[in-house]
């Protein structure tokens, strides 16, 4: 059986990649995708912890399902805001969304 550490390492790497993407990407849609990466890293953590440590209940799996649902709602809202911004200034680059100091 694969030890728990492997899952935790994978999740740590994914989370860091997501955080790097958030900081390095300039396109709002790509930043959103990086946030999804961070959330999925959390999901891996939750499911792995739950499977290895709390085998009698499915707390982690249920938690992960809720995270997925909320993330979907968040993306829906975010994309509609990005469309509103694109309509008003024809860009989805966060560096150019700078009417107020960032």
């Amino acid at each position: 059986m694969i030890p728990l550490e492997h899952f935790l390492t994978l999740s740590g790497i994914l989370f860091s990649l997501g955080l790097f993407g958030v900081l390095a990407r300039r396109n709002a849609v790509l930043i959103l995708m990086s946030i999804e990466l961070m959330l999925n890293a959390v999901n891996i953590n939750l499911v792995a912890f739950s499977a290895y440590l709390v085998s009698t209940e499915f707390v982690g799996q249920v938690f992960a399902l809720f995270v997925i649902v909320v993330a979907a709602a968040e993306v829906g809202l975010a994309l509609s805001i990005i469309i509103a911004i694109y309509r008003s200034r024809a860009t989805s680059n966060v560096d150019e969304v700078d009417l107020m100091k960032w």
Binding site: G18, I35, M38, L77, A78, I81, A84, I85, M100
Partner: peptide, 18 residues
């Protein structure tokens, strides 16, 4: 400006909740 506020709030909020 309002769109911009919303986008900034959402992106930073999503990162912090992750």
């Amino acid at each position: 400006r309002s769109n911009e506020a919303s986008l900034k709030y959402l992106l930073l909020g999503a990162i912090s909740s992750a």
